[in-house]
Design a binder for these strands. Structure first.
Length: 593
RNA sequence: GGGGAUGUAGUAGAGCUGGUCUACAACACCGGCCUGUCACGCCGGAGGUCGCGGGUUCAAAUCCCGUCAUCCCCGCCA
């Protein structure tokens, strides 16, 4: 490109530049060859501009333009010209002008791309991922990455302004017993030992508080070796924040300020009040600790009404410690048997053994269960659920966990099908007062709901010894449109309490010392009260962009099988590398393909 | 580990109650024509192991079994 230096980006150009000589570079989006005249749409990161090759202008450039194909990389020198009368393209930002080319240089030719870059047709995701560098040429994808950049930039500006320091923490760290499965990295120098990639910088940020940095943040890569979902990747990014000498209220209001500024940055200003819900209330009313508050369809507990019912599915469940809850699907009394079968199958995914229903139709009540209910019980249900003619009442009877999972998901499914969701709304809610621990039936012990460093509420400290399950935590989650986008807590900052929690989690003193000795020791040297929060950057950007998967806001994401179709990672490695690390592969040769 | 959906030219689809399927048109591609197009147009052309393997059958893109890949979900994700 000797001697040719870009003078403008495509979208810099407007009527103001008419007559100017400009040098542009970019990709050929499309070529329209009219024989005696060739139009090329030149694309750069900022947009498109039409460049015109005409033998009247420049014979040599015109001849060369005959060879141009899609995605060729070119540089042109030409004059900005007003488009002739009647040829203005109102759909194009630069549609009032065009470039009459004097000189064309082909900087690189290109094979016909396997995915269409300018097309509206959607391409299979496997191909998009294999040719991710081409997929990322699409303006939609570039906009997603730009949005992500803007959010990150705003985070840094905001945090800096609030006196936070961005501090990096190690990627090679030690494995911790609680939490997700670790990604492990073998140590060559220390044969037989492993580093773990961080699930989050949790311990380091707490140590930074002990160090007296007071306000820390980091846009941190985190790694969790668990199965993937539309909103879960094995490596993802957290906006990680920690501060000293703050109470929960101050942290939450500072974070609201941050979130509002982030939204304003991307043009979303009509954000309502952040709702506050206790965990207990969220579970009671929505069956979820991350409820979508853009619509109602609240869960109603009718356990008491049907406790003595002849209908054994209800009364028997209540008797054995379960509950019966329902949703009033307004105006759905005309659902067909097939619709109802489908919903029943749907709640089955979440472990519900059935879905009872009462349809309040014009010609009376239609239901397979009302014959087992007394007049009084039926009236009680209808009253409790504020049901009227035209409504469909749907019930699940089971253990509270199953009822919550089934009905919270049913609630969301109904909201989508009944079009109750305003897609433009950004509805934030804080969920607070989480239980500190919950019983893990499989392992027969308590496990932390958040993580083991979360502080219990002061008034519940006495309960720690008697009934740990009743202890509430100084923890808070931020939920946006039914998606958990962040969570945090005040931390324990003294050794005694932290040791007590570890004991409740059934960690032996030896284990505690081995795994967390360094943290407890740090607390012996003057640890300030501290707390923080971490936001899932990918999820946040996904929601701001109105997207369905975080893959669309990650430049090079993995497939659901945690592979990279572009680089074909993970891959086999040389025997030599294994030997250097003192590792042996213990699977059959033929499986190692 | 489990449930579900999808897999047909480069791409996205139709065909899939088995037989004129020698697999269809579209977009893209290649060639020709065209000086005002902008999803340019017109004419012509090339392009397919119907994901892969096996089975049923006189006959399989179509039915059955297995397998692989991608996606959605359950489990899992402090």
């Amino acid at each position: 490109m000797k001697g040719l230096k870009r003078s403008h980006y495509t979208n810099d150009l407007s009527k103001a530049e008419i007559g100017a000589e400009v040098t542009l570079t970019g990709w050929v989006q499309r070529r329209r060859d009219h024989g005696g005249l060739i139009f090329v749409d030149l694309r750069d990161r900022f947009g498109l501009v039409q460049v015109v090759f005409s033998p009247d202008q420049q014979q040599e450039a015109f001849a060369k333009a005959e060879d141009l194909r899609k995605e060729y990389v070119i540089a042109i020198v030409g004059e900005v010209a007003k488009r002739p009368e009647g040829t203005i393209n109102p759909d194009l930002a630069t549609g009032e002008i065009e470039i009459n080319v004097q000189e064309l240089r082909i900087l690189d030719s290109a094979k016909t791309p396997p995915v269409q870059i300018d097309g509206e047709k959607k391409v299979g995701e496997d191909l998009r991922l294999k040719y991710r560098y081409l997929d990322l040429r699409r303006p939609e994808m570039q906009e997603n990455l730009i949005l992500r950049h803007k959010v990150m930039k705003k985070v840094r500006d905001f945090m800096d302004q609030k006196h936070f320091l961005e501090i990096e923490t190690p990627m090679l760290t030690r494995s911790t017993p609680e939490g997700a499965r670790d990604y492990l990295v073998p140590s060559r120098v220390n044969a037989g030992k492993f580093y773990a990639l961080p699930q989050s910088p949790q311990l380091f940020k707490q140590l930074l508080m002990v160090s007296g940095l007071e306000r820390y943040f980091q846009i941190a890569k985190c790694f969790r070796d668990e199965d993937l979902r539309a909103d879960r990747q094995p490596e993802f990014t957290q906006i990680d924040i920690e501060m000293s000498f703050m109470n929960q209220e101050k942290i939450m209001s500072l974070m609201e300020e941050l979130i509002k500024e982030l939204l304003a940055e991307v043009g979303i200003t009509d954000v309502g009040e952040f709702t506050r819900l206790s965990y207990a209330e969220a579970m009671e009313r929505y069956g979820s600790d991350a409820p979508d508050l853009r619509f109602a369809l609240e869960l109603v507990d009718i356990s008491e009404i049907v406790a003595e019912a002849e209908f054994n599915v209800f009364s028997g469940t209540v008797e054995s410690g379960g509950q019966v809850k329902g949703i009033n699907a307004k105006g759905c009394a005309d659902f067909s048997r097939k619709d109802l079968d489908e919903l029943t199958e749907y709640v089955g995914i979440y472990g519900a053994k059935g879905l009872a229903w009462i349809a309040l139709r014009e010609d009376g009540i239609n239901s397979p269960i009302t014959k087992f209910l007394s007049e009084e019980e039926l009236t009680g249900i209808i009253e409790e659920m504020e049901a009227e003619e035209g409504d469909l009442l749907l019930f699940v009877a089971d253990q509270p966990k199953v009822v919550a999972a089934a009905l919270s998901n049913l609630r969301e499914k109904l909201a989508v099908e009944l079009e109750l969701i305003d897609e433009d709304e950004f509805n934030f809610a804080w969920v607070t007062d989480f239980p500190l621990v919950e019983a893990d039936e499989e392992e027969g012990r308590f496990v932390s709901l958040h993580h083991p460093f979360t502080a219990p509420k002061d008034e519940d400290i006495e309960l720690l010894t008697e009934d740990p399950a009743q202890v509430k935590a100084k923890a808070y989650d931020l939920v946006l449109n039914g998606v958990e986008i962040g969570g945090g807590s005040l931390r324990i900052h003294n050794r005694e309490l932290q040791e007590q929690i570890f004991e409740i989690l059934d960690l032996s003193p030896a284990e505690i010392e081995e795994k967390f000795g360094f943290l407890l020791e740090a607390f012996d040297y003057g640890a300030p009260p501290h707390g923080g929060i971490a936001f899932g950057l990918d999820r946040l950007v996904m929601l701001l962009g109105g997207l369905d998967t975080i893959r669309d806001v990650i430049a090079f994401p993995k497939t659901q099988n945690a592979t990279c179709l572009l680089t074909e990672a993970p891959s086999n490695i040389d025997q030599e590398q294994l030997e250097e690390l003192n590792l042996e592969i213990d699977i059959e040769e033929e499986d190692l393909l």
